[in-house]
Design a protein around this nucleic acid. Sequence first.
DNA 1: CGGTGTTTCTACCGCATGGTAGAAAATCTG
DNA 2: CAGATTTTCTACCATGCGGTAGAAACACCG
Lengths: 204, 204
Amino acid sequence: MTPDATRRDRADRPLTLTEQARRAQLIRVTTDLVARHGYAGTSLARIAEAAGLSKAAVLYHFPSKDAVVRAAYAAAIEALVAEVGAAVEAASGADALAAYVRSLVAHLRAHPEHARMIVEAIAEETGVTDRPDAPSRRQSVAALVEAARSTGDYRPDVDPDLAAVLVNGAVDAIVAEQLARPDFDSGRAADELVELLDRSYRRR
Amino acid sequence: MTPDATRRDRADRPLTLTEQARRAQLIRVTTDLVARHGYAGTSLARIAEAAGLSKAAVLYHFPSKDAVVRAAYAAAIEALVAEVGAAVEAASGADALAAYVRSLVAHLRAHPEHARMIVEAIAEETGVTDRPDAPSRRQSVAALVEAARSTGDYRPDVDPDLAAVLVNGAVDAIVAEQLARPDFDSGRAADELVELLDRSYRRR
DNA sequence: CGGTGTTTCTACCGCATGGTAGAAAATCTG
DNA sequence: CAGATTTTCTACCATGCGGTAGAAACACCG
């Protein structure tokens, strides 16, 4: 008995080459579809069609449509975190916060599909979250502000939590504006935001 | 012939009492539904059920489900614009921009359902826009910044368009944070944002 | 009370959705 | 080449969607 001993439980080792390739392809086309038609307009059938497959084939590689979208979202976040994280860790004090602002804006300008993906995922409450134990974006940025405070770059009375909310909001607005108006110079906007933070928060 | 001379074209005068009451009720329940379940999760059947009606009855009062949502959105925007507009016009120069920030945050804290409604409508691209000739939010705020510049409150080298993007982003972030964390003091955050703008943009 | 116009209901339609069953290709392994 | 395993396909299903038809309540006006 035990009729299903062949397909070993899933999550067993090797992960075929085609498997990897298909997963990557599906993540790619899903990201593009979300970028073009929004989250709600991205159906399983569309994903399958864009990949040149049938719906069933897609669901062979992922347990559900939501899993595909979640994987695409995770990939976008991973790329973002990798680049921004590196930029931030290469600096310290107020420079680290400036690096955060500039590298985040730059990354999402270079990868607008990821921008749409991330924005849409945030808007929906699909519970498509990161690990819930991970620090929130606000908390991470608040830590940067606090670091800038402790190095003496920023005044001691700056509220890190509040500053983090404002900074993230401004960054998101820059990214959104860039998405809506390609002529918008988001790099300059990021510089402007950094200058604004300097003027307001620096010790003088 | 002309079988339909009774129901005179629509948009004829009086608009019955029940009509008004039903429309208002439908807008109310739709706003609440969008606030609770998001735009995508607000179906015609749900709206009807929440109003204690059948789907057909809802579509008797509105030509389509989208029309209901659009009406609810328009109502939220109208209330917002009325309050914020009044607050802004009661001040001038940099004070007008401060009034914009404070009154917008205050209004959406007092009416969180409207906040969700507006956020969702923005996120979706349902073409549920205002009149397309109306100035965009960014343009309106840019005008406020320019006014503050021309009164001499703000430095002449402040870029109104860029400042508008940053201010709106920060305001939205404050509203969103308030929505996510009821303990968040959005009033204080608004004050903080105003102070930040003063420190950065004021002539000194 | 009778008639007229309103508001609402039940029952349906067509469609798109996410997902499944089972068989057919394609591919790898010996 | 033969057998097993993978990948993919063609149906199909149930569900929820927005919307419509036509008849029943309902309210008002003479």
